[in-house]
Amino acid sequence: MRILIQQIINGLTTGSVYALIALGYTMVYGIIELINFAHGDIYMVGAYGGLIALTLLGTMSTALHLSGMGALLVGLMAGMLLAAAYGFTVEKLAYRPLRKASRLSLLITALGVSLFLENFVMIGQGASDKTYVSIGMLNRNFIVGGVSITMSQIVIFIAAFAIMLGLDLFINKTMTGRAMKAASQDPVTVQLVGINTDRIISLTFVIGSALAGAAGVLVGFYYGVINFSIGYLAGMKAFTAAVLGGIGDIGGAMVGGLVLGLLESLGAAYLSSEYKDAFAFIVLILLLLIRPSGLFGSSRS
């Protein structure tokens, strides 16, 4: 029982991270039907953004003592900002000129952007692992009844859920959010009611990338190391989570991420740790055989 609870905690932590990244996939897909393969690399850029900001702060002044919470917020903000800037630029330079081109060209461009970002960061930041700034507060460890939970896990839960709640409120309660939803249903007709589709698409990329950036910083704190290639596997997993939940559906991406994290953790514990990654994909295939549009996806015409 104790082991089961521990595995569930472990799984929910990775699951929340997958969910945060999956949201960006699903939002972009919802609005321009593009599988944005560069999204995983935006997450990686976000992780570097947080690290760079914290390192700069650390070297600028040792007198400037950031409390644990302050450093965490600064890191998150920097990561989200940098990721958002990259997401905005990538859409503007790489995807917008191809808006009218075939979907395949767009998809190949996305792969190209992904390779570009990876190599760009590798040249700029070096090929080896970077150790993340360690915040004492996050390394605190609580052991309750033999089950261990670290402060960084708690922070990941809280941050992920706060961000997701904020996103949900934004989309359903604000005018811009509702315009986004409308644009995802029919990007052409919404222009008739005075919605600027270009702006909405830019905004979608900015928000999706900021979420991925936040995930990158949280993962940096959680594992303590990042490198230029972390985006690939994380991107694949988040994509799987988005498909699992039904791509295009925001609630589905959140649930899909959590389910994927749990499946991986429990699969590794009770079946085989070597096939952890394969296990998630097997479940995806099985689910798609039964429900081709994912858990919550509606079949689009």
């Binding site: 595995q7 472990n10 514990a269």
Partner: peptide, 20 residues
């Protein structure tokens, strides 16, 4: 007696098993 995958970053599943 178990194994992990090179390149992975999360070994908590295996370690929880080891702990027991």
């Amino acid at each position: 007696d178990g194994s992990i995958i090179q390149g992975d970053k999360d070994f908590r599943a295996v370690l929880t098993d080891v702990k027991s």
